[in-house]
Write a protein that binds this DNA or RNA. Structure first.
Lengths: 145, 145
DNA sequence: CCATATGATTCGGTACCCTAATCATATGGG
DNA sequence: CCCATATGATTAGGGTACCGAATCATATGG
């Protein structure tokens, strides 16, 4: 048998990633959030940031940040505050509600994880997590990169 | 420390899936193909299919199939043939070039796999593949579902 | 032979990302 | 001091991948 595309990890990972994102999105929807908002919320938990810094850390362009922040402001999760020291900058800070939403998002993510991993034995679960984080870090994905 | 979204498998898988799809897309681009075409090509290797069957097997709506087939016809990979027995149906069949493209796509996928897994020890590689296919099958992704 | 079902297609909309152009503010050299 | 240039945010427009609803042709059964 010739090698099949659908047997490749590339194909599998793409599909699984997509499916997972969808599931996660469904879980987040009731909160008024979408998957891409999560990294922003998490980053802002530590300290307020300018939008450019946010963009670079998450790995998207500044215009995407604008959209995401519009949405996040819409649900009252963040506030844009002009930096008095440099009036070009918008300091983005988490509201109390934002902090709460971030926690809820983390819970939603954990539920999705449980759903996905449900059937797997514990050792396979940890092996999976190990291998995935290894790949993600060597290929330099994830915020903080 | 409170649980972080970015630690979740849901988040990781989404990101990794997206990144992998991008890499794969880059590899396929010179062939005139995109990732979503691959499942179609592979399915048609066995036998010609109607578009509705194609849609159901791959897991997309018929209108998506129309788009994909337009593209695949554009590169000469498939042919639409009116079913003489039921003139509503389009029998979609692989051309010789389509067969060749399918093989090239499989090679491209294998290269991406090698790139992704490059750093990992062999046992982690197989563990990863095992866990991912387990999840994919229990959650009923992948063509043939 | 007509109502209804089915296969393909078209149309419009959503989510997510991009680049390039624009606007406001800062900053340093003349 | 003032202007050229740089920087942060934003807007406008475009691309991909998907969806649902409407449409059109053909089949099929009452």
């Amino acid at each position: 048998m010739t090698p099949q595309v659908t047997d490749s990890l590339a194909f599998l990972l793409s599909k699984l990633g997509q499916a997972t994102a969808e599931r996660f999105a469904d879980r987040l929807a009731p909160l008024g959030l979408r998957p891409r908002h999560c990294a922003v919320l998490q980053l802002l938990e530590t300290a307020p940031l300018g939008q450019l810094a946010l963009a670079r850390t998450i790995g998207v362009t500044p215009s995407v940040v604008v959209d995401m922040l519009d949405e996040l402001e819409g649900v009252g999760a963040v506030r844009r505050v002009r930096d008095t020291a440099d009036r070009r900058r918008q300091l983005v800070e988490l509201t109390d509600e934002g902090r709460e939403l971030s926690r809820s998002a983390a819970k939603a993510a954990a539920q999705v994880d449980a759903e996905l991993l449900g059937g797997l034995p514990a050792d396979q679960q940890s092996a999976l997590r190990l291998a995935l984080t290894a790949i993600a870090t060597t290929h330099d994905l994830l915020p903080r990169g």
